[in-house]
Design a protein around this nucleic acid. Structure first.
Length: 425
RNA sequence: GGAGAGAUGGCUGAGUGGCCGAAAGCAACGGUUUGCUAAACCGUCGUACUGGUAAUAACCGGUACCGAGGGUUCGAAUCCCUCUCUCUCCGCCA
């Protein structure tokens, strides 16, 4: 949510920023509501001040034993007027908030202007695209031969898009989770969190999933609870409606399953683990002082890159252009893994600085050095998503005989084995 | 699920219709003094909205907020209703 004061005082700056996002939002309506709101508040406040004064007098008169019936009737009329004005203010505020919630964040000045994904900028590439002296297979063929997962039986119990990992396949997933949590907690200074996977409507609104993304999430109507699409939701909401007392920055890492309905996205790109309704993810979330959030974003990306480098992945870092950034982000980097079996890049991490956009929405504040209460800046990034990393590990490690060599750092987590070997028939 | 108790400022905690934005203590911040691994004393010490001076810091004023929402009243932290959460006991249960 943008600051109404910013819109009021610098409407042209806001308009210009939204324009680079190709957002059709018009701030004039918000400004007009703001005028009406303030006028109504001023009028109501003046009436209340008058009423308070008279009420005080009534108390004194009564104590003196005088008749106050007349003056009381007069104040009752004021009360009715006040109630009507308060009602009007409430209505205007509700309308204004609805409009404000629909306005996306302003892109940071360093964000390249552009239409869509084609205008994103490759910032750097790491590793090299491996060549094979045989035709590389995709992860589905590899994993099925290795007995790592069983999509058919999974579909029978839950429908398509819910992976069932088996044996070493299940262990490999656990190994990756453990490896990433260990790296972020011991080397990068994050505190581990294990949050609820199911949250309320208010929580979903705090981070911006609701109302916009309702159709993309799983909902349990009996209890009006939602399955989280990312750990960003519960972890960012840890401090909802709070003034943070701990010293900033606060850095959290959480592993959770993520649930996404992915409504209307069936087809080629959904094969195997590429796009699923349930996947695990290790997520990084930071709460930082406002002046430091852009440095923190670079640090966050470095933490994610460390995961990929330590695993020996080939990847590239993209800076998203203004037109391709998500609703709440002011600046965003995507990290993409090279997957030789697909002969393409797979988006596996998204690292964003939201500035105060989420904090204002969720009312997360801190006290700065001057003792003044202000909104914090929030950031998050996948560090990283399991399913696509899993794909890249299989496809990059594959050998001519169908076995898959595991990255060295994973071996201790895999009981010391160095490769996955196809099951004998 | 049943019964009971409770929710007040960063914390503890007083306050049962006007003198309460709210006592007191602790913590925090500024200062004075003594001097030593700290004490004493003085002062400051909530948030949001809003008007004005001023200009995005600051100052003065108004309004609202004592878990949330609604009601009674000229006037509500205080009375009434609904909801949420916490605690205790019972039941059920991984």
């Amino acid at each position: 949510m943008l600051d109404i004061k910013l819109i009021r005082e610098n409407p042209d700056l806001v308009r210009a920023g939204l324009k680079t996002r190709h957002s059709p939002v018009d701030v004039s309506a918000v400004l007009e509501l703001d005028e009406r709101r303030r006028a109504a508040i001023t009028e109501a406040d003046q009436l209340k001040a008058a009423r308070n004064e008279i009420s005080k007098k009534i108390g004194a008169l009564k104590k003196a034993g005088e008749d106050t019936a007349d003056i009381q009737r007069q104040t009752r009329e004021m009360g009715e007027k006040i109630a009507a004005l308060d009602e009007a203010v409430r209505g205007i505020e509700e309308e204004q908030r609805k409009l404000l919630l629909a306005i996306p964040n302003l892109p940071h000045e360093s964000v390249p202007s552009g239409e869509d994904a084609l205008d994103n900028v490759v910032v750097r590439e790491w590793g090299h695209k491996q060549t094979f002296d045989f035709e590389p297979k995709d992860h589905v063929a590899l994993g099925e031969a290795l007995g790592l997962f069983d999509f058919e039986r999974a579909a029978r119990m839950s429908g398509a898009g819910f992976p069932l990992f088996t044996g070493a396949g299940a262990r490999l997933e656990r190994a990756l989770i453990q490896f990433m949590l260990d790296l972020h907690t011991t080397k990068h200074g994050y505190t581990e969190i294990s949050p609820p996977y199911v949250v309320t409507t208010a929580t979903m609104t705090g981070t911006g999933q609701l109302p916009k993304m309702a159709d993309d999430m799983y909902h349990a109507p009996i209890d009006d609870l939602w399955l989280i699409p990312t750990a960003e939701v519960p972890v960012t909401n840890i401090y909802r409606e709070e003034i943070i007392r701990e010293p900033l920055p606060l850095k959290f890492v959480a592993h959770t399953p993520c649930f996404r309905r992915e409504a209307g996205s069936a087809g080629q790109a959904t094969r195997g683990l590429i796009r699923v309704h349930q996947f695990d993810k290790v997520e990084l979330v930071q709460f930082v002082p406002p002046g430091t959030s852009y440095d923190a974003l670079e640090g966050l990306v470095a933490d994610v890159e460390d995961v990929l480098q330590t695993l020996g992945m080939t990847y590239r870092v993209l800076q998203l252009c203004s037109g391709d950034m998500s609703f709440a982000a002011a600046k965003c980097y995507d990290l993409e893994l090279w997957a030789p079996g697909h002969n393409g890049w797979l988006e596996d991490s998204s690292c964003s600085n939201f500035e105060a956009f989420q904090a204002r929405r969720a009312n997360i504040r801190w006290k700065n050095a001057a003792g003044k209460t202000e909104f914090v800046h929030t950031l998050n990034g996948s560090g990283v998503a399991l399913s696509r990393l899993y794909v890249a590990i299989l496809e990059n490690g594959q050998q001519a005989d169908g076995s898959v060599v595991l990255p060295e750092v994973l071996r201790p987590y895999m009981g010391g084995i160095d490769r996955l070997v196809p099951k004998k028939k």
